[in-house]
């Protein structure tokens, strides 16, 4: 078993266990910390796929900025001392059954898809994930969506300030 396989299975197990712990934690602060573990595992998968730019951006933007924002909001609300109101047990069972049915259906679809038979995702090689190549494409072919996203950010910033001010 090659070292990349070991890393792949370790990161997969880490992602799945952490994602389950996000759901099972009673305290929202622990949920945020487990979600950060999920994001680090996914960043590890990006590095394994040689998508280095996305790995760094995932770590900085998601684990660094967004999760800290969540933590700040939770601590502002002082939620961790009260117990969260729970849905009744039948709603939980119904939710788990619906999610399981969705998973089974999607896995069955993906298993039989003829486009994916004997295809492999390239590990550790390939240069399309490097910053140089991504930057060239981003600032030549995709420069208009890139500029539009700056307008989106401005409107989101103004919206957040206006909503949070009153």
């Amino acid at each position: 078993m090659a070292i990349t396989h070991i890393i792949f299975w370790f990161l997969t197990a880490l992602a799945l266990v952490s994602a389950l712990m996000v759901l099972l934690s009673k305290n929202p602060v622990y949920s945020v910390l487990w979600l950060i573990a999920v994001f680090f595992a996914i960043s590890g998968h990006y590095i394994l796929l040689n998508a280095q730019f996305l790995a760094i951006v995932n770590m900085i933007v998601y684990a660094g900025a967004i999760m800290v924002l969540f933590l700040f909001v939770i601590m502002l609300m002082n939620l961790d001392k009260e117990t969260e109101p729970q849905k009744d047990i039948w709603m939980k069972v119904a939710g788990v059954i619906s999610g399981g049915c969705l998973l089974i259906q999607l896995v069955r679809l993906a298993k039989d898809a003829p486009e994916m038979v004997n295809k492999t995702a390239l590990l550790k090689t390939g240069s399309i994930g490097l910053i140089e190549n991504l930057g060239k494409v981003l600032f030549s072919d995709y420069v208009v969506p890139f500029e539009i996203s700056s307008v989106l950010f401005l409107s989101a910033m103004v919206g957040a300030v206006v909503i949070g001010k009153k």
Partner: peptide, 10 residues
């Protein structure tokens, strides 16, 4: 699917 279950149950 774990995300979907979380949205439905919490």
């Amino acid at each position: 699917s774990i995300g979907v279950v979380g949205v439905l149950t919490r």
